[in-house]
Design a binder for these strands. Structure first.
Lengths: 219, 219
DNA sequence: TACGGTTGATTGAATGGTCAGTCAATTACG
DNA sequence: CGTAATTGACTGACCATTCAATCAACCGTA
């Protein structure tokens, strides 16, 4: 674990946090546009408004910047999903809210999501595993919501892993295939249509009743 | 279009085809393992059993090799899916066979599929569009199968684009998330469980009847 | 309040290694 | 022999990383 920590030469933790945030913002933009290998440290530094040498006060090597960037996206997922569930009790509501929230974070961070797909393999084995572990944690949020629905007999007894990934891929798909989808649909339409296909009938009759009732409440 | 053609200095078309096949095979392996930028032309040449200079007789630049590699995967999709449909008449059978075939090609070329996701953005704008156009052609096969089901009232009137991509992502997902799924499921289980979730109830009652009847015929 | 000194942040030019792509020389083949 | 294919040493560019030099903020002292 400690080998995975990114070390900074600068002592002041607030400064480290601020500078890294600037570096990550600049790097995310450039990596997304040009890719990791086509982006130089000089460019990142310039966009962040600092000198190239200074980057190396906050990071040991270029790969560290990539890890910071990817962690930043992955953590955004883990942060935003739970907050969408506040106040929701019914398991179907919670599942639907989870899916919607996931799609919306992905939409907000479309470029960075694609970047994560492109570049995770450029990380060292250990760091890749770290990212995968975070992904599994996030997926737990979805898997939990599914399990609750099954427990309440609102969903048929399908394979939770497979449904979880189907949902994950729907969310990520919005970013991965935005070159096609973006011009045909809004994110809200995409969420609605995806849910209709997915829940259209994995739901048991009683689950379906709730979903359709809730659905008709929208304009 | 002609600007997209990859030119070779060597005249003999058979030799060009043979050598390119060797180069593509070597490059696919190395790009998958190490990524495009970490792989040198020397390594590709060595694995293909030729000298580094010779590569440049068959290709103008390193990017050309990447295009050849990605085209090779994408074309494998377009080739294998139609052949799985032979002899099938019922629209549901055809849809199910399409999905199964797609998942199985992806499984056979897992590493290359992931590579296509990682590296398509490294191509020039025009070449990326070329790949995307091929992807759309392949997706047409799926979209057509869906449309036929809808026409025959076997599927509800869902958004074809969205369902198409849901299917595409299920297939690609097997490769993209094989680090998680591979140890828990076989590809055949994955196909079965995915179909159950997906068709479990996008199907109309009569579509469902057919799907379930067909499904129970399997051991 | 002024000032010399210390610490830590910041700069950007210099270094060293890596590779894509070239080409003169060599080989195989018909 | 002549033509096409093949080799691999070489070059020029590029870029991650280092580091000597500068700068700024703060502290203790008179």
């Amino acid at each position: 674990m400690s080998a995975l920590q990114i070390t900074s030469i600068v002592e002041d933790p607030e400064l480290v946090q601020r500078r890294r945030k600037e570096i990550v913002a600049a790097a995310t933009e450039l990596f997304s546009k040009q890719g990791f290998y086509r982006t130089t440290i000089k460019e990142i530094a310039a966009l962040a408004g600092i000198s190239s040498g200074l980057v190396y006060q906050y990071v040991r090597e270029k790969d560290d910047v990539l890890l910071l960037v990817i962690l930043d996206v992955v953590e955004a997922y883990a942060r935003e999903i739970p907050s969408a569930l506040e106040g929701l009790e019914h398991p179907i509501d919670r599942l639907v809210a989870t899916i919607g929230a996931y799609c919306r974070v992905v939409d907000k961070r479309r470029a960075a999501t694609v970047l994560a797909y492109r570049s995770t393999k450029s990380l060292s084995r250990d760091r890749r595993r770290l990212i995968q572990a975070r992904e599994i944690e996030t997926n737990q949020l979805i898997a939990g919501a599914i399990a609750d629905c099954i427990k309440s007999r609102l969903l048929r007894r399908i394979n939770i892993d497979v449904l979880t990934y189907q949902i994950v891929l729907i969310a990520h798909g919005w970013a991965l295939k935005s070159w096609y989808l973006k011009s045909r649909l809004s994110i809200e339409q995409y969420i609605r249509d995806s849910l209709d296909i997915l829940l259209g009938t994995v739901l048991t009759p009683s689950g379906q009743k709730h979903y359709l009732a809730r659905r008709s409440r929208r304009k």
